[in-house]
Amino acid sequence: MNTIRKFFVAARIKLMYLIAVLLVLLVPLMFFAFGSGIVEKIGRKIPIREGTFSATGELQLDRGDIRK
């Protein structure tokens, strides 16, 4: 039992270190991705649109657009 516990603790610690190293690598990767147009590609799949605003800054919302 003790050995199994020790194994899982060691595995968890290794996994956390691996995640930490991957997160370091994710930083430059993320900024590269910005230049590659991926933001636009993913963004277009997300159903959100720009608002229409009056000159006084009020959002002109078409209430028919409320999602069911």
């Binding site: 636009e40 993913i42 649109r49």
Partner: peptide
Amino acid sequence: LVYGVLIFPTKLFSDLGFFP
């Protein structure tokens, strides 16, 4: 999420827009 619209007067993809 509810209306599918940005309530801030910015563009979706400009440099300082919503998605970036």
